[in-house]
Simulated assay, not measured.
Amino acid sequence: MSLAQSFLLRRGRFSEPGRLYLLTTATHQRKPLFSNFQNARQVVHQLRLSDQEQDCQSLAWVVMPDHVHWLIELKSVTLGTLMRRFKSRSSRALHKAGVRHEPIWQPGYQDRALRKEENIRYVARYIVANPIRARLVTSIRFYPHWDAVWL
């Protein structure tokens, strides 16, 4: 999506504290920056930092080679603030670690608010199974960049 069209992702966006959201963000030009183990761990650290700062509670996430899926319960900030902090801090950490790709992330992100009747564990399993569907591994046990509160 071009920068000129990225505003379309924000249209109608509403941030509700206590609500569950599925967030997805991709690297710039879908470069597989997180195929590198250390780069992926830098991103994992930033996801966990968002929890520690009480911006959200992470329920499940997976860091794929060129994107991140993140199931959260939103806490004290808006979705925009959460994603801006995550992307900014992870970009700085990656650049500090020697990643020369500029920029790291595509503009914008996708979000989907979960309905109360949706099966949250089903959504979490869907997120965690991404590396299997992408044929990166045959079992999630062999993929190091994921977590879920139920496991």
Rank of each mutant, 00 (worst) to 15 (best):
K31D: 11
K87S: 07
T81H: 03
P32S: 05
W70R: 06
R92S: 13
S58T: 14
S35H: 11
Q52F: 12
L82F: 06
Q29H: 09
W61Q: 00
H69C: 03
K75C: 11
D66R: 02
L47N: 12
S90R: 05
V62I: 07
K31G: 02
K31I: 11
W70H: 09
P32C: 06
K75G: 06
V68H: 06
F34D: 06
D66E: 15
V62G: 08
S90H: 05
V44L: 13
R92T: 13
W70P: 06
H67P: 07
N36T: 07
V77H: 04
V44K: 13
L33I: 09
Q54S: 13
S50C: 15
Q42S: 09
S50H: 11
L71A: 00
V43Y: 01
W61T: 00
S35E: 15
A40T: 13
K75F: 12
L82K: 09
Q38M: 08
E53K: 14
R89L: 10
E53A: 09
H67K: 11
F37W: 11
S50N: 15
E73D: 06
L33M: 08
V44E: 15
A40W: 08
H45A: 15
G80I: 00
P65N: 05
L71F: 00
V62T: 08
R84M: 02
V44P: 12
E53F: 08
F34P: 10
R41G: 02
H28E: 13
V68M: 07
P65H: 03
R84G: 01
A60L: 02
L49A: 13
E73M: 01
R41I: 06
Q46G: 11
S91G: 05
S50G: 12
R30I: 02
N36G: 04
V44M: 15
R92N: 11
R48E: 15
T81E: 06
Q42H: 05
K31N: 10
F37T: 13
S91M: 03
Q42M: 10
R92A: 12
T78Y: 00
T78R: 02
D66P: 05
H67N: 06
R85D: 12
K31E: 15
D51W: 10
R84Q: 11
F34G: 10
S35G: 11
K87R: 10
R84E: 04
E53H: 11
A40N: 07
C56T: 10
L47T: 12
M83P: 01
W61V: 00
L71P: 04
R48L: 14
V44S: 13
A40Y: 09
D51Q: 12
H67Q: 08
V44G: 12
H45W: 14
E73P: 01
T78F: 03
V44Y: 06
D51K: 08
R92H: 13
L33Q: 06
V77S: 03
T81M: 05
S76K: 04
V43T: 10
A93T: 00
F34C: 10
Q29R: 13
M64S: 04
I72L: 05
A93I: 01
V63G: 05
V77E: 07
V77D: 02
